[in-house]
Each structure stands twice: as C-alpha cells, then as structure tokens.
Amino acid sequence: MSAVSPRVAVPKRPRVRPGAISLTALTYAIALLVFFPVLWTVLTAFKKEADAAATPPTFFFHATFANFQAVFDADYFTYFKNTLLLAGGSTLLALVLGLPAAYSLAFHPSKHTPKVLSWVLSTKMLPAVGALIPLVVIYKRVGLFDTRLGMILLYAAFNLPLVIWMMRSFFADLPKEILEASIVDGAGFFRIMTRIVLPLTAPGLAATALLSLIFSWNEFLLAVNLTAANSGTLPVFISGFQTSEGLFFAKMSAASTLAVAPVILAGWLAQRSLVRGLTFGAVK
C-alpha cells in the first residue's frame, strides 16, 4: 500500500459517461412503459364515459368526479370492507399456520425436509381453474359458499406455501448461535419466536405478509365464482361495471383506482422496513 497511486490526483467530481446517460434514459423508458397502464387507468377514472370510450384516445378532457361518485353509490365500501377482511384475515391465518412450519423446517431439518418443501410447493402448481368446480360444489354443500370465512380459509391455503417457503429461507439465514444463545439463556419456543426470531426477520416477514396481502386483495377467479352479495371483493366489484348493457370504462377505471390505491399505499409504507438490512453485526 506504500506505492502512491496516480489515481489519487484525479479530482473527486465523478465524470458522467455517455453510457450511463443512455442507461438512465432506458431505465426511465422501461419504468414509464410499466407504469403507463396504471397512469391510463387513473386518467380514465376522471373522464366522462364518452371521452373514455373515444377513439383515438383523448389526453385532454374535462375532469369529473362523477365516476367516483357512482362507484361509491354502487356500494364500494361493502366490497372494500370484504376485501380488507379477507386479505387481512387470510394473511394472518397463513402466518399463524406457516410461521411454526417454517420454524421447524428451518431449525429442525430432517432428511425428509426437502420432500416436505416440494410437496408444499406442489399445491401451487395446480391451476386454480382446475380446482374450481370441485370447490364450488364442496363450498355449496358445506355452507361456505359466499361466506367470508370460506374465502379466508381458501386464501390462507393459497398463501401458505408462500409463507412457508419465504419464511423458512429467512429463518435459515439467521445465525444458529443466536438461537442457541437464547436457548441457553432460558428462552422457550414462544420467547425465541417473539423476542429473537421475528424481530430479526421483520423485514422478511413484512415482505411475505405484503405479498400474501396483495395476492388476496387482487384475486379474481375464485372470488368471482365463489362469492356473491355477502363476501364479494373489489375485483368482483370492478368486473361488475362490465355489464350486458355495455362497458362502463370510466367507472370501471375509477373503481380500479380506488381498489389499488390501498395496496400501493401499503407497499409504499412498508418499503422502509422491506429494504432495511436483515442482520446487523450479529456475529463476528
């Protein structure tokens, strides 16, 4: 290290290379491409139905809140409440069932662990449509059709593999000695979980919960076939604006905007804890 590097003399100001500029431009272009449908939906939500259906599409129009009024009048809040309960309830249930499973798979692996894991995942491989008819029949027979409980159970089952897989890998990344130290210190399963494991995997837990929430929030196929007036969710509500009398594009967009807004908000709020580092100077 004693040799003086000539590079030291170069001024600190970073030089912007042409390559970097085009890369940045490309990034913005892709971001815009991805974001455009969302933007268009939001814009359409403020148009009159006539403007919304116009070809070619109009970018300049007189903004109106009428669509939102119509959406609220069409019982938005009932569907919103259903969605909230279903997404929240199913995520909670999936976590309550999935965390202990992930814990034991991560910390007490056996030679069957890989098989259990692929079995858990295999339930995700079946297309939901394939299970639809039996589900409708069964749910009607046992009285779970169009109930919130039924949908919570179903979504929890769908999210369980995700929870188990993700949380298992977050748990497995924890230094084993930290858990052992807490065991020697006198902590039992519950304490280890609440005082050591979950605080240390909080960012991972937040990410997992968010993914589970989003899935339940946006799920359409099962919701549209298994629910009616009692437990319908926002995606079902949105599709309701596509009636036999025609498409109500603007109202549908307003409903969509109101449906995704909470999810986007939640994701934005969780961002801080999502990107926070996982372990901080635990060992060595």
Binding site: E177, V184, K284
Partner: peptide, 14 residues
C-alpha cells in the same frame, strides 16, 4: 444452570 460463550459471540443484534 450453565452459561455459554460462543465463538461468534452470538449477541442479540437488535
């Protein structure tokens, strides 16, 4: 009724 000191210290980071 034992206490252990680990090679990696295993302090609770949080």
């Amino acid at each position: 009724d034992i206490a252990m000191v680990f090679q990696t210290y295993a302090l609770y980071p949080h």
